[in-house]
Amino acid sequence: MDGEELTEQETALYDRQIRVWGAGAQRRLSKAHILVCGITGTIAEFCKNIVLAGVGSLTLVDDRAVTEEALSANFLIPSDENVCAGKTLTELCRDSLKDFNPMVRVSVEKGDLSSFGAEFYSKFDVVVVSCCSFTTKKLINEKCRKLSKRVAFYTVDCRDSCGEIFVDLQHHKYSKQKREEAIECELHYLSFEESISVPWKALPRKFSKLYFAMRVIERFEEAEQRKPGELSIADLPAVVKLKKELCEAQSLNESHIPNVLLERLVTDTREFPPVCPIIGGILGQEVIKAISGKGDPLKNFFFFNAMDGKGIIEDVSGKT
């Protein structure tokens, strides 16, 4: 594959980024196929980043209609009603994204995620899932893992001014620069289910509080049969109660999941717009690293909290 050269047009357009990741990585990007499930402001940012980077194709799945919430942090949806008439959320995003880079094929796939079979997922190199239930995330992750080819799997969620990225690259081989020479490395990842099954007690002492809080919310939504983000301040007492039960069962001190953090996550379930480019930017970089096989990829959770401004990597490997 390295034998093929970039076209003159590609060289001119991608000049600045080829200087960052090299012509080989650019060629690999142009052959990568990416699936995105669930359109959010963060996903809009991510899509913009990888379309600009010049991936081969991007497929969007989300059957929801255009709502006010969908508009709030999404710059891909024009406000002109004439343009929007009769189009779905994904179709509008597709049209804007195509415009960003005519060299990338952007398309829309309709249907229920959980109904797609192995054949569907095997068309992709990267699958990114957002605003899906805990069960759907596990299901898609397992489907990807069963394929004979390796598919990089990501989940991304942004609530209020907090964001979480989960990464499963299965067995990932890559190279990185160490001083002057390139060295070969390999990483092994846990699945989404394996990761969140790691006993809390087994996690490092100063583990990100956001990790635990997100798991509590996830469990709550699952138990109550809510859609992701379908929460309000009225749910707080029940969420706090669930937190107590989980902490007890996992022998974790309750102070690791402050109630104020839970309160934020249930009160403002919308994305805080400036956080979207941050999470969508980190996710974009990670997907580019995974495709190009260059540079240390994130393993296996990333958290950002605008309150303290830290963007932290946590490795849930089950090893202490």
Partner: peptide, 8 residues
């Protein structure tokens, strides 16, 4: 060197 992600 410049990429979209860092700028975002």
């Amino acid at each position: 060197h410049a990429v979209a992600t860092t700028n975002a």
